[in-house]
Write a protein that binds this DNA or RNA. Structure first.
Lengths: 224, 224
DNA sequence: AAAATAGTGTCTTTCAGACAGTATTAT
DNA sequence: ATAATACTGTCTGAAAGACACTATTTT
């Protein structure tokens, strides 16, 4: 293999792991133990192991499991980032992914793992600020018409909660009546039959994401 | 560099180059001279040269220029494709791009370079069928609301021509009146002042893409 | 009572889509 | 005349957005 006369790029894969905690979108970071950028917060990532990884998505899944114990989440390819300067070790390529996880699935955070509000995270290692920005833009765009934001919720949630996550992701307020009308049309959620009571007020019904939840599709019949 | 104990993936970059000829969306392919897949049609692509390429987009730009003489076109990242089996030489990553070019900018096709109707291309080398499918899907999706399809047109074009390219990309007919209403709203095109006469009928006015042509944006105020 | 939620209904505005033309300028 | 294009206009229906409620069930 590699009968080229020129050096090959370094290939890594990195993930923007987002979750929702206390109604705030949170980014998972790892404090780097080794140089380069030792001691600096970074996106979880690492090398592809050609012996065991089936593809890049498999590699980042393995890496997230190894470094954070995480398993079972929505994973989506973001983009690749490349160039001679993004990693001091040399010309590199990062295959970047976005993972949306439920806070509960993260469990206790291991040493060096931290959650920080996604929109405030800065000065990450490498070009990870750029990768994060790409992820947030993607989430915001898809927030307009897909079920993506709902994947951040715990498996059972209330209607105010799901409306709040859409508002958080989009950065705008939504009309309660219109939002719920849309939820029904899209058949995005279904009742669990259970309720939850916190503080005063009528108990909130608990919902779950509907099984074959309308991903994207429709809303897009019209238009040039 | 590369102080890892495990082998690194092969990294290539490949491009789905699309153009419009005689009203049909055409894919540019290269007949491979060397194994693997010698003699088979493939997407243009190649290795990244870490010495000279500023990033992956720079690499594919250089490769397209070297192999097809092409320069000046819309380039957009598609996705990465990876795994142990897509290239018989070993575990590989392809950074895939989509390039939209004007037929005129392709000039004479060099030996081994061919155009085939994009929706009929099959049995390309490697997993290039998959990459092509990804590009066509992307073009179709963006065709609903961006100026992307217009980038396939020659620099001066008529209103029937631009409507036709949108219909081609979307695979549907569009109402003339509604389409032009939208063109105006978006300020997508501007008159050149010139006209063109072919066969019978009133001469068609020639248009060009408006300078700051509304990319995506708007159309997207509404909606959950 | 106050709070938090659920639920209903209606009105407006926007806009794609469909349709029906007329007008212009060439062969 | 015929063809190809340009241009203008109207109507409809769907859906988002905004608003105003009422109803329910808890502390």
């Amino acid at each position: 293999m590699q009968d080229q006369s020129f050096p090959t790029p370094i290939v890594t894969t990195d993930a923007v792991v987002l979750t929702l905690e206390d109604g705030v979108l949170q980014l998972l970071t790892l404090r780097r133990a080794q140089p380069p950028f030792a001691g600096v917060a970074a996106l979880p990532g690492g090398y592809i192991h050609t012996q065991e990884d089936h593809d890049a998505a498999g590699a980042i899944t393995r890496i997230l499991r190894e470094k954070t114990g995480l398993g079972g989440f929505h994973l989506e390819q973001l983009a690749s980032f490349s160039g001679p300067d993004r990693d001091p070790r040399g010309w590199s390529v990062s295959l970047a992914y976005m993972a949306l996880v439920r806070r509960k699935d993260l469990g206790e955070l291991a040493e060096g793992v931290a959650l920080t509000p996604a929109y405030e995270a800065r000065d990450l290692a490498f070009d990870h600020d750029d990768i994060l920005a790409t992820a947030l833009r993607r989430l915001r765009d898809k927030g307009a018409w897909s079920n993506l934001p709902a994947l951040l919720l715990p498996s059972e949630f209330t209607l105010p909660e799901i409306q709040n996550i859409y508002e958080t992701v989009r950065g705008t307020k939504l009309d309660q009546s219109s939002f719920r009308r849309k939820l029904n049309e899209l058949r995005l959620v279904e009742e669990t039959g259970k309720t939850r009571q916190e503080s005063a007020g009528r108990p909130a019904k608990l919902y779950r994401l509907a099984s074959g939840a309308a991903y994207a599709s429709r809303l897009f019949d019209r238009m040039i």
